[in-house]
Structure formats: structure tokens, C-alpha cells
């Protein structure tokens, strides 16, 4: 049974159709990439699923619950975590406190929340920066913190918007490793939005969905998708 089921999802901004009758599903424990060139509609899809924007039409069902029309915090509490393409750290708080705030989604008890945060800070390898303010962190670390904060809320599915952008090769490798461990060690599903056709990202994906101008133009294993003519032309330009 699928954890997330998106059916005929459409989002219009005035005359522009940012997402065009998109359907796809994510099975529990699966890592899916959504790739697509600049402006393809990846961020909009994430915003629709997490309730930050409202769908023009279509259905989003997560874990048996209809998400359309729910407020973002409700969706987060239902088990959908997210990161932001332009990272949004809680600047004035330390790395540990950023994660701790997330952990309070699961418990009102301070000690219990601290234990959850300790576990997450170890898992995401941010422990040595625990007391650093989120404000001054380098971009790779900020992206990791973004994921850690969301992970602390105990999601079943995490939507990662532009996991790779702005990262240097070392940081990219670390990010890939972390996403892999999310699935392998924690059984958490992830949907990773990526702008470019990146071999590394696809290599850890069970499935790849390709968006162009808001429409799904291909879906399949990484091998199938990279061989697809339409995908190639979308990236090279018609």
C-alpha cells in the first residue's frame, strides 16, 4: 500500500500552470527523486503536499488522510516532514535547540524531547556543533540541520527540496549518505527534489519521476529515466 498518493494534482498561478494533473505515489520505505529543470514545478509540488500552498484541484492522500485543505502544522504532525529549498533555520537558536524544537512535536516532556534531540543530532552527525548558533553555519551544515529538525518530529515521509544545490563534492557525498541511512536505518521514505540529472542522487533512488513544465514526462528506475528521449530533450532544450 502506498504511503503517499497524489492524484491529478494541479496548481495554477493565474494563467501559469505550475503543476499539471500530476499523479504519483510513494510506498513506505521508498526513496523517490523528483527531477526537473528550473521552474519545472518541484517546489510547488512540495508546497502543495505540505499545505503551504493550496491545490487548484486534485487529491493528496497520506497514510489514509486527505491532506488538501489542511494547515501545514497538521500535515507535519500527520508525519510529513520537509526541508526548504532556501534553508530556513531558526537563526537565533543553537543547533541543538533547533532540533529540540522539532522533537517537541512528539512529546511535551522536556527530558523525553532532549533524548529524541540527542538521538537525532548523533544520527545527523551534528553533535560537535550542538552549541553553535544556526545563523552562521555553512550551507552544507544548514541543509543537514534542516533535515535534522524535520527528522526530530518523527516523520514517516520527508520531502527534501533541492538536497544537492550549493553543496561541494564532499558535502554532496555526505548528504547522499545521510539520505540512504534515512531509509536503511530508520525506514523513513524520502522524496528528493533535484534540479539536475545527478547520477549520485538517482543511484540511491528506488524510483525517479521527471517533471517538465509541471507535467510528469517520465517515471521509472534511474536507468530507464536516463535513457528516455523526452527526458534528454527536456534537459538539452527542444
Amino acid at each position: 500500500m502506498s504511503l503517499l498518493e497524489v492524484r491529478d494534482l494541479t496548481k495554477r498561478f493565474g494563467g501559469l500552470v505550475a503543476v499539471d494533473s500530476l499523479s504519483f505515489s510513494v510506498v513506505a520505505g521508498e526513496t523517490v527523486s523528483i527531477i526537473g529543470p528550473n521552474g519545472a514545478g518541484k517546489t510547488t509540488v512540495f508546497n502543495l503536499i505540505t499545505g503551504f500552498q493550496r491545490a487548484t484541484s486534485g487529491e493528496i492522500v497520506f497514510d489514509g488522510m486527505n491532506l488538501v485543505g489542511s494547515r501545514p502544522h497538521k500535515i507535519a504532525l500527520a508525519g510529513v516532514g520537509r526541508t526548504f529549498q532556501v534553508v530556513k533555520p531558526l537563526r537565533g537558536l543553537s543547533v541543538f535547540d533547533n532540533i529540540l524544537v522539532g522533537a517537541f512535536a512528539r512529546t511535551g516532556d522536556r527530558e523525553e524531547a532532549r533524548r529524541i534531540a540527542e538521538d537525532v543530532i548523533e544520527f545527523t552527525e551534528l553533535a560537535r556543533l550542538r552549541d553553535a548558533l544556526a545563523d552562521g553555519l555553512p550551507i552544507g551544515t544548514r541543509k543537514r540541520l534542516e533535515l535534522a529538525r524535520s527528522l526530530a518530529t518523527g516523520p514517516k515521509l520527508i520531502l527534501l527540496d533541492e538536497v544537492m544545490s550549493g553543496l561541494n563534492p564532499t558535502e554532496s557525498r555526505e548528504a547522499i549518505e545521510l539520505i540512504k541511512r534515512l531509509r536503511d536505518e530508520r525506514g523513513i521514505s524520502a522524496v528528493a527534489g533535484v534540479e539536475h540529472v545527478m547520477q549520485v542522487v538517482m543511484s540511491i533512488s528506488d524510483r525517479v519521476i521527471v517533471l517538465n513544465h509541471g507535467r510528469k514526462i517520465a517515471e521509472g528506475t534511474p536507468e530507464e529515466v536516463t535513457a528516455d528521449r523526452e527526458v534528454i530533450s527536456a534537459y538539452l532544450g527542444e
Binding site: T50, F52, H73, A76, F84, L93, D97, V101, G102, G108
Partner: peptide, 25 residues
Amino acid sequence: RRKLGYYLMAIREDEETAESIGIDT
């Protein structure tokens, strides 16, 4: 030092982030 205080600080720092981690802002 409790959930309420942390939630209020999260709202102060970024309301969208706060919503994204389950805070009814």
C-alpha cells in the same frame, strides 16, 4: 525552558519553519 517557550521562540525566528515542524502558530 519548556515546550511553550521553545515554540514561541521558533515562531519568532521563522513562522513557516515553525509550521513545518508541527507548531500551530
